[in-house]
Write a protein that binds this DNA or RNA. Sequence first.
DNA 1: ATGAAAGCGCTAACAA
DNA 2: TTGTTAGCGCTTTCAT
Lengths: 327, 327
Amino acid sequence: MAREAGVSLETASRVLNESYEVKEGTGAKVHEAMSRMGYVPNELARGLKARKSVAIGMIMKNLSDPFAASAIKAAQEVARANGYILILASSGGYADLERSEIENLIGRQVDGLLISPIGSPRSNFNDIIPLGLPVVTLDQPIRDGDYDSVMINNRLSAKGAVQHLLNHGYHRIVAVATRPYLHTSSERIAGYREAMKRAVLEPRICLVESEELLTAQWLSENLFYRHSPDAMICMNWVCTMLTLRGMKQVRKRLGTDLAFLSFDDFELAGMLDPSLSAVRQPADALGAQAARLLFDRIKGKDKNKRRSIVLPTELILRESCGCNHSS
Amino acid sequence: MAREAGVSLETASRVLNESYEVKEGTGAKVHEAMSRMGYVPNELARGLKARKSVAIGMIMKNLSDPFAASAIKAAQEVARANGYILILASSGGYADLERSEIENLIGRQVDGLLISPIGSPRSNFNDIIPLGLPVVTLDQPIRDGDYDSVMINNRLSAKGAVQHLLNHGYHRIVAVATRPYLHTSSERIAGYREAMKRAVLEPRICLVESEELLTAQWLSENLFYRHSPDAMICMNWVCTMLTLRGMKQVRKRLGTDLAFLSFDDFELAGMLDPSLSAVRQPADALGAQAARLLFDRIKGKDKNKRRSIVLPTELILRESCGCNHSS
DNA sequence: ATGAAAGCGCTAACAA
DNA sequence: TTGTTAGCGCTTTCAT
């Protein structure tokens, strides 16, 4: 450390923290010594003393889907702007991994946690969150949890999307979703049900437990053969990708063979032919907002009751739903 | 801490670390006390003592592009498997941010660093890496740096791709790239040059400093008007996205108006019409390999000279290049 | 087999 | 204005 360097002092700390006054010359000498020997303060030791780590943790279900990636990017930027680092973890959608990753992060003394919870009944981490540790959930609130949350209204968004398909005159609308036990999935499906019920139509729901089961063959058997749909809605990005791939394999064409709507928009949706209509989640806004809420708590600006922010989704109407937009 | 709990001991540490022998009963009592009071050891304190943080840092240029996202996901999984956490940072492609983020991570006492360097001449961080800190670079090696690296052969991959276009008989092939000062960009452009030179054709290169300048208007003026190309190759994912968007706006069609090839493949490339031919980088393998190399160093398994791993790319031939694949 | 005590690098309270 | 000292929570000799 700088103490033995050039000058003599544990006052190094003072100049670093700009606490108290330091005589001109001394300060300069310290700075000089620090840069000469490339001194970098040990944040671990600082954190140990200050009882905080200047780090936040973020846990997502899948780090690589574009929605998560945007949220992560936005959250990291906010963290950096606040002088914090972002520790990234993944639950993979499994409750036990979620739990152990949270415990791990707590052991690292993170000052706050951003979690996109699994949301299954088994997913409950209230008991392991230390009192006073700020937590913000993304995507969904947690049962009995008194945390801030930032999400979209999955149910209404799905309902609105299905409503739109209904307005086009489709009757045999199939909803396709993976991992129905996830909160987002179940809410979106609920929205679908509501729309269908209101139209007095039979709900047609194709669920698959895990992504790898959503194959072309599965589509043929469970979707096309059983329902002969005139429209379908996929309930998340992965689902849309896999369905699109499967449909190509079985030579079903969007638009001509059936209408299509995707929950989750992506860069290329507008470039497909027909272009894909989609429900767009403001992924980066979700990440940024969540991080901002978290820092409001961490810095003690926000002492109020829990806040739940619901960001609006946007129904992007392109061609695949039957619209004729040419944007 | 557990000391005041139930029993009396600094032996708590011993049972935690499973060092030394502990009497049956004592061990049980300690465990009981720990779980009863939900004790989680403070990793900061541990790290301070052990002089390591059990954390690695990862710095990418853009956290949200799908290539980075896959690499991050893979690296995080390897880190977790090794009991390490992953601190994620972004350079945004700026040399000064890269530097300050590295310094920040070093202050956090990370045990290793995964960096996808900017690669501009100004990007040189050798001077701030402490002796003995393992570093693995992704995408490119660093000048004068003695680090392990994992990459693809950008130049040859680009050359091969252009060669393929040439074999189709195109002559007016334009290369489009953003941020030419980035190593990956310049290498790919170099590959393009080599292929064109070999065919004794005039190189046609359209560069744009930053992504937001790549607009439809820019495409019209600089690309179509100036070169009237019969084929083009975009040198990275962002570039492909923007170009595709721009072309749609100016009503240029892939396939009929000109052939197209993308450096960087993505989920939907095969679903466009015409489907996009692309150079595929093994993003997750890059991330995983890099992390594995890093842990070989961290755990001292690897004492050898620097290793440079070059992973193979794959030229995915679909339709947009002029091929007639129907996969 | 277990307790006592020193110390990791830093900050903060107190003295000088 | 600057130096001294104790202690953050843990691990690790060294005694017991």
